[in-house]
Nucleic acid binder design. Structure first.
Lengths: 244, 244
DNA sequence: TTTTACGTATTTGGTCCAACAAATAGTTTG
DNA sequence: CAAACTATTTGTTGGACCAAATACGTAAAA
């Protein structure tokens, strides 16, 4: 505290919550963090201190902390108390690991078109940065497809391959987005495939992409990768085309 | 209940949490939802029923419900109880509206490179779909820059312009990702700019992009948009290059 | 008799309190 | 230097009360 009596209309405005005591405490804690300029790693007051400070019961404070924890903004260990963190990205990932929604035809084409823009579209920056270790590691990741036991595992390997590919770009925005979308991408990868499909088709498609990379063959890279991304589209039938 | 004594290893596996009672209840509630096949709009048992069902105290159940609420999976109103929802996307957006982190040089270049891949890279698909209404609406959005009063408002208009641009693609994956990243993008847009910058430079850069679109001039579109995205990079100094 | 309106009782989430269990950091003791 | 102890702090429980929303039954009106 001390600083910023004026702070007011700046960035931290959570607007006014719904008036519930818990939301109010959440708001106050966030204000506290902002005003005290707490950074990642710093400690928050103990629950009971917060109770006294905000005139709230311990349960109310605890529910507020649950929210902050769920948002990945604080980490709390018994005895040591709560410390500031920033796991929002991983929380966002967990968010979408829920609710096993069915992948629609439109979802498939949207997501794959999106990935096409990122993976195929970044060919120039990618080829600028490629080094031998990238090629080697892509090979070794892809080799794991031979030993997979179920679809889940196979799609994990497939995903790891593509993450390794774009990691060459050294762009954390892209990497973060990929991780957020991971659950959806995994489902897309599994759609219509069998273990055998992964071991044969997917494997050789990946190998083709790697070969194009090692030869620095832009056109081949783009063609092979694009084709690879669109494999699986055939497994979607045309049903339910018009959905509002 | 009734169905699926076998269900076991399917999709809903939240793995086993850290063993805390609250996490356990969260897990059980999610299992309950899955097993009972509850859809959005359906009701959950009352808190007290959940207490009895899971042998947990009411506070524990409430903390679990706080988590589900924070995840945007349930909505709870006094007296009527908890109903299933799916506001995960809006929660994800809220997630990143927090913690007014400073935009680093690397964040800037990463995010803008990312946007470059999406916006500039999609020129073919974009030009395939463009219609007159798109051009008109882009004009009218951009016109709002003349009447802006502060940076916040200006960046909102700027953002709206780019969202409208990519909305032509009719790709909800891209749109969702853009919305999730909105807070970060807004900050990037504000970096180093003034109201005047928006009213003059940003405005005319947008107009240039629109003009290229209306002429179906691919090269001009790409050049102008790419230049526009990289405007602002000059406001970052080299400080703090090596951060682990 | 039927329908509408009102008021009461019940249900349900929201908040608070007090107490105990478990885990851990720091301190003391061998 | 290591082990045991102590105090502190989170984790969990059970209970209590309140306020608001709903359900229902009763009374009044058509």
């Amino acid at each position: 505290m001390a600083v910023s009596t004026v702070k007011g209309a700046l960035s931290v405005d959570t607007a006014s919550p719904d008036g519930s005591a818990v939301d109010h405490v959440v708001h106050q804690i966030r204000e506290l963090i902002a005003q005290a300029g707490l950074k990642v790693g710093d400690s928050l007051p103990t629950e009971r201190e917060l109770c006294a400070q905000f005139n709230a019961s311990r349960n109310t404070v605890r529910e507020a902390m649950r929210i902050l924890k769920a948002y990945g903004l604080v980490e709390v260990r018994p005895k040591v108390g709560a410390t500031i963190t920033d796991n929002r990205m991983s929380r966002a990932i967990e968010l979408f690991s829920f609710a096993t929604m069915e992948v629609s035809r439109k979802t498939f084409s949207d997501v794959q078109a999106f990935r096409d823009l990122l993976e195929v579209g970044s060919v120039e920056q990618l080829f600028d940065r490629i080094c031998d270790r990238d090629i080697d590691e892509l090979h070794s990741i892809n080799a794991k497809l031979a030993g997979i036991h179920d679809l889940e595992e196979a799609s994990e390997v497939d995903f790891a391959f593509h993450v390794r590919l774009i990691s060459i770009l050294d762009n954390s925005a892209i990497l973060d987005v990929y991780n957020v979308m991971k659950p959806i991408i995994l489902r897309i990868m599994q759609k219509g495939k069998t273990r055998r499909t992964f071991k044969t088709e997917t494997f050789s498609e990946h190998e083709g992409v790697i070969e194009a990379m090692s030869h620095r063959d832009r056109l081949s890279f783009q063609y092979r990768l694009r084709t690879h991304l669109m494999t699986g589209f055939k497994y979607f039938n045309e049903e339910m085309e018009a959905s509002a």
